[in-house]
Design a protein around this nucleic acid. Structure first.
Lengths: 166, 166
DNA sequence: TTCAACGTTCAAATAAAAATGAACTAATAG
DNA sequence: CTATTAGTTCATTTTTATTTGAACGTTGAA
């Protein structure tokens, strides 16, 4: 009732299992640096190296992970804007592609992971000031330094995004 | 046989327990973003807000953590260049100060955490190329993209450090 | 030399994070 | 309407990371 994979394009359609494995492992390790779970890296890596978009079921099968993990991983990647939904031919199944523009990836990470932390930092620094009612010099100097760090980070992010330009 | 703390300077020596707590918690949360253990943030936060340098024993007492954790945390902070050793008056006990120059902190993090990852990425991308013997177009394009990301990161880091200037 | 203070290390315990899988909703095909 | 497929959610299990604490090396004082 359905074709498992159509082998009708002009280029090679062989799957280099070894290479795909290297890429999956690469991303699995890489995302750990960003504090994301390994499974998210494996999913992104699979999509990054795949010739064609993959469905949740494809990913779950290839990676030998539970459907729950796959669903949650894709959710995170969607939130980060690291994957794009592609309307598949077959029924209502959704296929995913990796977003591969570094600018978009970094942008999504900044928006979802960094900005919220900077916002909450602002609030917390405000509380510190409230707490230093006597305006003790030493404490005040340190809290001010913290706030300068925060501001610098806020200024740097748009610059970073600009440098990633394109 | 020893003085626990000398209260002889001209400024205030009151300890704002509430504020110090806020700062500790702030850093405990902050370092998690960088993938460092909470205890490391607590130690750094304690040193950051403290009026005077603290010894391992001081930290262990204030934070209610084991000596093992404290020792390991300080080791990590030393490696990152986030703390400075200060020769104490008392015996051979070592006192620590927080390094508070953002440039140094970021520099240490880049040197210890980011550079090593970029190096290993270079090796891994080399392996991917070896693996793509048939120079398949799709695979080659993706691996090249990965390598461009790596190079861009390598270029960006010195720029970042430069912008943090001062 | 012996003792005590200081700090480190690492195997084991604990805490935190991630993955699983069963129960669920929603949508469609028959 | 019912059965089937796709996908999500979340309590539980599993895995991974962190912390503990006892044993150990070192140094300096007595």
């Amino acid at each position: 009732m359905m074709f498992d994979s159509k082998d009708s394009e002009r280029g090679s359609t062989e799957v280099n299992v070894e290479l795909e494995e290297l890429v999956r492992v690469f991303f699995a390790d890489a995302v750990k640096v960003l504090g994301l779970p390994k499974s998210v890296g494996e999913i992104y890596g699979s999509l990054f190296i795949s010739r064609e978009p993959l469905s949740l079921d494809d990913l779950v099968e290839r990676l030998g992970m539970s459907k729950g993990s796959g669903s949650q991983g894709l959710k995170m990647l969607r939130t980060l804007g690291a994957v794009t939904e592609v309307e598949g031919i077959e029924g209502r199944k959704i296929f995913y592609e990796a977003e591969t523009e570094l600018k978009s990836l970094v942008g999504g990470f900044i928006r979802e992971e960094i900005r919220p932390h900077l916002s909450s930092a602002k609030v917390k620094i405000g509380k510190m000031n409230e707490c230093n009612v006597s305006k003790d010099e030493h404490y005040d100097e340190r809290v001010k330094k913290l706030d300068r760090w925060r501001k610098r980070a806020g200024i740097l992010l748009p610059i970073l995004q600009r440098v990633l330009g394109k």
